[in-house]
């Protein structure tokens, strides 16, 4: 047992403070302390990508980031993608294009795709597949996920 540490951070645009143990992962704090259960624990080992969140705009596996590391950082989770009750185009395209089934990997894919499109609004199919390679899915076969990201990119371009 160790002393708890105070961390100040921004989650989905809002200032958040929490107390955590030095050994707690960001994923655990998001889920247990902040009740943000959108990010999932698939492997707790940095392999499956279900826990992906953005840390200062960069997608990370939150299960292998220590919570104390996010002091002063900006975190974006799947819960922050929708704006004023409107789904982000990536979410909408996943939903309409049947790019999700059981849905546990979905938050990770959505956040990774958002990070990609923020950086590269017009990615090639290869770019999409390459950038999503860290996210594993056991249900969909990826095809519809790639198509959903392509559709979202096209929709964002027309805005």
């Amino acid at each position: 047992m160790s002393k708890k540490i105070h961390v100040s951070t921004t989650v989905n645009g809002e200032s958040v403070e929490f107390l955590c143990e030095a050994r707690q992962s960001l994923l655990e704090v998001l889920r247990e302390n902040l009740s943000l259960t959108g990010a999932k624990e698939g492997c707790n080992n940095g392999n499956c990508g279900a826990c992906t969140v953005m840390l200062n705009g960069v997608p990370v596996n939150s299960c292998i980031v220590l919570a104390v590391e996010v002091e002063g950082a900006a975190i974006e989770t799947v819960e922050g993608l929708a704006c004023h009750g409107h789904l982000h185009p990536i979410q909408k395209c996943f939903l309409e294009g049947a790019a999700l089934q059981c849905g546990v990997c979905t938050p990770g894919f959505l956040v990774t795709a958002k990070a990609l499109l923020d950086k590269n609004p017009n990615p090639s199919e290869h770019d999409i597949r390459f950038n999503l390679a860290n996210n594993l899915c056991r249900c969909t076969g990826y095809d519809k996920i790639v198509k959903a990201v392509q559709a979202a990119a096209a929709e964002l371009q027309t805005r």
């Binding site: 259960t37 959108g38 799947v78 819960e79 789904l87 049947a98 999700l100 849905g103 979905t106």
Partner: peptide, 16 residues
């Protein structure tokens, strides 16, 4: 027809 639980799943609100 898109799955009915898709909205909850795609928004991270679905409670597994």
């Amino acid at each position: 027809v898109p799955r009915l639980d898709g909205l909850a799943k795609a928004s991270g609100k679905a409670k597994y």
